[in-house]
């Protein structure tokens, strides 16, 4: 069963089409990274899936349940962290988590235990009796994540979960999300692509309200891998590097060569031949090699490539 499934989902605000026939399927138990430029429709999708907004057309299901028809049933099984979490400033985090626990109908003992667990998880034990109104953005974000987990959700919707955090806070959040692997499905929109690459199993890229691609992260990186190698030689050997590049440029397996100081980037026509020939060729000239690597595209490269392609077509 799919944890999240949309079919031809459309959302129109006046003359602006936020979602234009979005088809999306997220497998249960995966950590799904939902990527897209600003205004692509990420937040709108999450708002529809959580029941906060209504679709203009199409269908949206969470855990196989139709979103609009059975909102209460879905609400029991999901957790939601909005992009800008809001709290009752007069409450303490303990009171807020207790209130959330009451809303989920947890018995007193379980509510108390869960509240303590989540305070510890959010690192807010010492601030448990302070008013939320005086919290920093980071503390609020951690509390927001904690409240989203009160009911041990089957699907956790995170809208830019680390946008308000410093690098250390971001790492903590993504480490935590990684710990959720296998426990629940995480549906996460974010701009921090390096972290998505580290944490997410599957990635969906959305642009102008349409899904550009959806694939396992590794498959996506492999699909858009650039057949390129990067080599770095000793600083003093730059002249020899130029001579070598002129020589190797004539080889049939080489497409282009570009030199930036002591670094040379070789884009090839045949990766297998290049793997055999390139290293032998450069070491044969007597150049001292400091680094040699097969260039692996980052998710950011793939994202920019795909979104750029879409923009050109549009």
């Amino acid at each position: 069963m799919h944890a999240v499934n949309t079919e031809e989902l459309r959302k129109v605000f006046g003359s602006f089409t936020a979602l234009d026939g979005l088809n999306l399927s997220v497998e249960e138990g995966t950590i799904f990274g939902f990527l897209g430029p600003n205004g692509a429709g990420k937040t709108t999708t999450i708002r529809i899936l959580t029941g906060l907004a209504h679709a203009t057309a199409g269908r949206a299901r969470v855990l196989g349940i139709e979103v609009t028809a059975h909102q209460h049933e879905i609400a029991q099984q999901i957790g939601y962290l909005p992009e800008e979490p809001a709290f009752y400033a007069w409450m303490t985090p303990r009171e807020f988590l207790d209130y959330v626990g009451r809303v989920f109908g947890l018995p007193t003992k379980e509510r108390s235990t869960r509240t303590n667990e989540l305070l510890a998880l959010a690192g807010l034990e010492e601030a448990a009796k302070r008013r939320i109104g005086g919290f920093s953005r980071g503390m609020r974000q951690r509390l927001a994540l904690a409240q989203a987990l009160m009911n041990r959700p089957k699907v956790l919707f995170l809208d830019e979960p680390a946008s308000a955090l410093d690098p250390e806070g971001r790492k903590e959040v993504f480490d935590f999300i990684e710990h959720l692997r296998g426990q629940c499905t995480v549906f996460m929109s974010t701009h921090i692509l390096a972290d998505v690459e580290r944490v997410c199993d599957t990635v969906g890229i959305i642009n102008r309200g349409k899904l550009v691609t959806e694939a396992p992260c590794e498959a996506l990186l492999a699909q858009y891998a650039i057949p390129a190698f990067e080599l770095e030689v000793d600083q003093k050997a730059e002249a020899a590097l130029t001579s070598w590049s002129n020589l190797v440029q004539r080889e049939a397996w080489v497409k282009t060569i570009s030199i930036h100081g002591p670094v040379v980037r070789v884009i090839v026509n045949d990766v297998e031949v290049a793997k055999r020939e390139l290293l032998a060729s450069i070491t044969g000239t007597g150049l001292i090699l400091n680094r040699y690597e097969v260039v692996r595209p980052s998710l950011e490269d793939v994202f920019l490539h795909l979104v750029g392609q879409e923009e050109e077509q549009a």
Binding site: P85, A86, V103
Partner: peptide, 14 residues
């Protein structure tokens, strides 16, 4: 306006 309604009403609070 503040967003607290959205924060609470995605939960099973009619």
């Amino acid at each position: 306006d503040k967003g607290t309604a959205a924060m609470m009403l995605v939960k099973p609070l009619p």
